[in-house]
Design a protein around this nucleic acid. Structure first.
Lengths: 225, 225
DNA sequence: AGGCAAATTTAGCCCTATCTAACCCTAAAT
DNA sequence: ATTTAGGGTTAGATAGGGCTAAATTTGCCT
């Protein structure tokens, strides 16, 4: 199947938004994610439906078909492998890899994918701790850890994933010692979703508004693998 | 200036074809190079002229403006850096890098370009021996060596550049020991452009039709740097 | 000089992806 | 059950890049 870059972007967006809460994905959510207007999304959804890449119920949102999910996973695999490669071999900082990977992910061959994966020794997570889909593109149910907002106050946890994309926010977090692998003490979880924590070894603390905290997943040291 | 991939491809094509014989580049030559029809080329040439990237005389072909040449050199620099990187660091064979670089060249950032160049220690030639434009994108007059067809019979020369793009032909040449850096004895130069030669250390010989020989440049060992 | 073949441009159409404006459906609230 | 706010869809336009068929220009050959 010959898909345009743009179609791949839509499928990837639907995949990511579905991950959010595993429900039907709404037109407006896709529009916001891709920074286009909703009529544009509607017309693209029609095309994706024609190609059996999504299931659509008018006015009620869409879900990926198996085939659509495979395409999305391929794109996500490319993206995360590239992020890993750029940080490991080209001296990029984890905070700046997203944009570059976003442009390259549509333009690499299977051959390139394979060689990058080999150079990295078949990695399983990217620099943000997000799982890299396996080469067979089987849907992974392997969300690592839990949202930091589900912690109890006083918990000590290991940061598993920081899935934000904004370089400024990522730099800020790194400056405060908040990176995958780091041990963290959760100081406060406010009812409106704000989380305050302190990284092991740092005596400063960070407060994270809900929309930042949402992207951070952690695990108890016990469950650390 | 915001240019589409396609416009970059046209400028690159014009640049390469101009290199051929430094004359005005004709519509049909571009059409063949890019595998589109000539009306398509004409309409794109109008757009490139509107943007002052080419000088055009209707019915008589085009040349690049200084600005157009800079864009072309940027694309060529990306292309050749990528070819070098793929062979040096990702285990590609020189015969297969062209296609991959052709797709990626439009999608890498200046940052990526700089880091790849640094990883390669600012290389000056790509795996085919073609010069990589410098970061300042000054027009290089630095064609290395001379066309193999200008050799005398019996000359012993060093292969400087093999500028073909066809993986099959490149593999064939490599199988016969004909790669940049190799010492070669020119056995025969036929009037219709066919060149027969034998690589140092190999006792087999290769015969190259004019359209293959045209892409091979050599230098006398004396002038070898 | 005249004529002709080949190359170029013009004309007119298509497809993709996007937009704005206008209309319509859903769901929540009364 | 009705209303209504707000998101979703339809309609119609635009811009980019491509094609075929029909003119037009060039330049070569006699």
């Amino acid at each position: 199947m010959m898909l345009s870059d743009v179609m791949e972007d839509y499928l990837k967006a639907i995949y990511q938004l579905q991950r959010g809460d595993d429900e039907r994905v709404k037109t407006s959510a896709i529009a916001e994610e891709l920074d286009v207007t909703s009529p544009t999304v509607t017309s693209m959804l029609e095309k994706l439906e024609d190609r059996s890449l999504i299931d659509r119920e008018k006015y009620r949102g869409v879900t990926l078909t198996e085939e659509g999910e495979t395409v999305a996973l391929e794109v996500v695999r490319h993206h995360r492998l590239l992020e890993a490669y750029l940080t490991e071999h080209l001296d990029y900082d984890w905070s700046e890899v997203h944009e570059e990977a976003d442009r390259l992910e549509h333009h690499i061959s299977e051959n390139f994918e394979a060689r990058v994966a080999a150079a990295l020794d078949e990695p399983e997570v990217d620099p943000h701790g997000s799982p890299i889909p396996s080469p067979d593109l089987e849907p992974p149910n392997t969300a690592v850890g839990n949202p930091i907002s589900e912690c109890g106050e006083g918990d000590t946890v290991i940061v598993k994933e920081v899935a934000d994309h904004d370089p400024e926010i990522l730099s800020y977090l790194a400056d405060h010692g908040l990176e995958p692998g780091v041990e963290l003490e959760v100081l406060e979880v406010a009812p409106f979703g704000m989380v305050t924590a302190s990284a092991r070894g740092s005596d400063t603390q960070v407060s994270l508004p809900e929309d930042v905290a949402r992207h951070i997943r952690v695990a108890l040291p016990a469950e650390a693998e």
